[in-house]
Design a protein around this nucleic acid. Structure first.
Length: 361
DNA sequence: TCGGCTGCCACTTTTGAAGAGC
DNA sequence: AGCTCTTCAAAAGTGGCAGCCG
């Protein structure tokens, strides 16, 4: 098995240019991570992805699913995900677009989701796509279940970390490689603001199938309380007129919606992006630039910055028996780090990762 | 007054236990 | 006895909506 130190050479010096897949895919450190369902993610991203957060915790949809290559088959790895604030702002939905509504609230306790299969050999991670289906988001700052805590009306993006480590406790001595995908950024909300996002979710999420057929939906409510039908019909009418989607094309509702969506690329964020240009936003004017340039991650609470030559030695967690809920880690980011991230299509190249100070639970 | 949050609802998919058949 | 397949109920996951709260 290759030692962790061997990998380190790949983290020193300036970040490499985007790599193309090739015969050297298994070269040490040549780890590649690609996002699955990129088309779906992009469809949401073009409208302005929203993720519901609830007290008991809510799954993401679309959920994060990635493919990995370039790992050492026999070496063990740990996969982690955390949520990084996009910027230092709080947002509000004003009619048809998101607008900055002030400074971000103080960051909630930062938590990292540990993939349930971790640690597992590289061959395991590479043989099939890796799903983070069970990752849950919550707005409950006192959450005891280990869900990732976010603020409503704030923007985040998931960040994936892969660590070569034989077990959870050697993670602290190991090297991180970090990946992000521009299209996975989202706004955390307690109720959907953009009706187009609601429609997309209903169209694509199997659990929301019950909301797909308007007729069925109305009938369902009508059975319980006829007055509801009237209200719902009115609401539906408003929605339809708002969306300019003729009710008669029930045959291809999804396609119609997607077509309509693409006409409004990034429109929900136009105002906000303009705002960023005018202000001292720590990130670029366009979210797409955010991931391809040197980046400060994230805001007030921060990350620790180390030379990439150093092993991760800040894992301050308790012993195994003290780990309450499995699959979750709490990160305490204490200082700021510079984070490089490079993208090539939907391929997130390895980055000069920030080394966290993890205080586990 | 208003925007955001919460709890409940009806519906769906997922999951796992139990039973039947080979 | 052990395995596979089917069935069914419970659990979990959805968005909508009314009402509460700051």
């Amino acid at each position: 098995m290759q030692s962790i130190r061997d990998l380190k050479s790949n983290f020193s010096g300036p970040p490499p240019p985007p790599m193309a897949p090739g015969p050297d895919a298994y070269l040490q450190g040549n780890i590649r991570m690609t996002l699955e369902n990129t088309e779906l993610w992009k469809t949401f991203h073009e409208i302005g992805t929203e993720m519901i957060i609830t007290k008991p915790g809510r799954r993401m949809f679309p959920h994060c699913k990635v493919n990995l290559s370039g790992l050492i088959p026999c070496a063990k790895y740990v996969l982690l995900v955390d949520m990084v604030p996009e910027d230092g702002f709080r947002y509000k939905w004003n009619k048809k677009k998101w607008e900055v509504a002030g400074k971000a609230e103080p960051q909630p306790p930062c938590r990292t989701y540990l993939h349930p299969d971790s640690p597992a050999p590289g061959s395991h991670w590479m043989k099939q796509s890796v799903s983070f289906l069970k990752l849950k988001l919550t707005n409950n700052t006192l959450d005891q279940h280990g869900h990732i805590i976010l603020h409503s009306m704030h923007r985040y993006h998931p960040r994936f970390h892969i660590v070569q480590a034989d077990d959870l406790f050697s993670v602290r001595w190991s090297v991180f490689q970090t990946f992000t995908f521009p299209e996975t950024s989202f706004t955390a909300v307690t109720a959907y603001q953009n009706t187009k996002i609601t429609k997309l979710k209903i169209d694509h999420n199997p659990f929301a199938k019950g909301f797909r057929d308007e007729g069925t939906n109305k009938k369902r409510r009508a059975n319980k309380d006829p007055s509801c039908l009237e209200k719902r019909t009115k609401a539906s009418d408003i929605l339809n007129s708002e969306e300019d989607s003729p009710p008669e094309d029930e045959e291809l509702p999804k396609r119609k919606e997607e077509d309509g969506v693409k006409e409004e690329r990034y429109s929900p964020w136009d105002a906000e992006r303009e705002h960023r240009v005018r202000t001292d936003s720590p990130v670029g004017a366009d979210t797409r630039d955010l991931y391809s340039t040197e980046q400060l991650v994230p805001t007030p609470a921060s990350y620790q910055s180390y030379s990439t030559e150093q092993p991760l030695g800040q894992w301050g967690g308790p012993g195994p028996s003290q780990y309450p809920p499995p699959h979750h880690l709490t990160a305490d980011y204490t200082t700021q780090a510079v984070h490089h991230s490079y993208h090539h299509g939907n391929v997130a190249e390895w980055s000069q990762y920030p080394l966290f100070s993890y205080s586990c639970w």
